[in-house]
Design a protein around this nucleic acid. Structure first.
Lengths: 167, 167
DNA sequence: CTGCTACTTGAAGTCGACTTCAAGTCAAGC
DNA sequence: GCTTGACTTGAAGTCGACTTCAAGTAGCAG
């Protein structure tokens, strides 16, 4: 119930932040260099972080897990105000921007899973009936045909293939 | 109905394999160096790939998307016979080994999504009611408490945290 | 004030996954 | 048989995401 002027214990040293975030201090300095997080300095030039920094870090880690680069994470985080605590609505805005990404990822994994389980379940172990295992062989003479989903988001850039077990 | 001795057109040059897999030829050579794929050689020492190689490549790409390294992919692929076409059952075995991984990944993404949408939907925009946005501030005095899921597979190694928006 | 640990910096190193390069060889169409 | 484009090699370079290092300074307990 005390501070809204952050008292000394509201600020974390880099070691404390490392402990609480699970990242190495070196990684935190690296993140700071990239502009993902920010620190104030003591008179002796040591970094002090607000607790909100943990949220930013959590966000970055989440972003990475959805397949984003740190640069992309920065773009999203840059929508947050620099020098005041972001409001819930502001966090929401950023969070929203992951939504479609997450859905996409889930969808892709579901497709992959469907292919795997579908094939495992379809009694095609003899390699004679299942399109998944067999398409390549059948398509051999037939030319290009039978393509089985699992294509990737085109915005993801130059990764035109590799998502197909057929052929 | 022709070949079971693979005729010339059953074998792909590295350029053709690159085109059909969407990977660069250099990447394919790299994969070969890692033992992920294999090639026979012409009398002139050029690589020739069987069409089954496309399946191996697709598998590797899928593995990468589920977050595995090429080394891990190799471990899985090594369960396949080297010098004959793998049976459906054999592919199934390998595929099965991804199953749990995929499920895990999906689950993690679902958790992340739930956290995001849950919070967005819960009317907590004022930053006063929602545990997701608020836990940190509330936990401030309370010390370490209220941890909100999103932990990672421990087998994934040294990535102890970062998966939490709280705190 | 001493001593110790945690901090500071920039530069260099590492790791995975490739790409680029240079110099030379192969395969296929005309 | 010659040309042209696809192929060969090993070595080195790149990129993202960090880590490690060396030399020095800050902050705090006793």
């Amino acid at each position: 119930m005390s501070a809204h002027t952050p008292s000394r214990h509201d600020l974390l040293t880099i070691g404390q932040l490392a402990d609480r975030s699970g990242l190495a201090a070196s990684a935190l300095r690296y993140y700071e260099k990239l502009g993902l997080i920010h620190a104030t300095r003591t008179t002796g030039n040591q970094r002090r972080y607000t607790r909100g920094t943990l949220r930013r870090i959590a966000f970055v880690r989440a972003a990475q897990r959805v397949g984003l680069s740190l640069d992309e994470a920065k773009v999203a985080l840059d929508r947050l105000p620099e020098h005041r605590a972001p409001s819930g609505a502001e966090w929401d805005g950023v969070a929203q921007s992951w939504q479609s990404r997450i859905d996409e990822q889930i969808a892709e994994l579901e497709r992959l899973k469907a292919k795997l389980t579908g094939c495992i379940g379809c009694g095609c172990l003899s390699l004679t009936r299942c399109g998944l295992y067999n398409a390549a062989d059948r398509a051999a003479a037939a030319g290009p045909g039978a393509r089985y989903l699992l294509t990737r988001d085109p915005t993801t850039g130059p990764e035109p293939a590799g998502g197909d077990f057929t052929e």
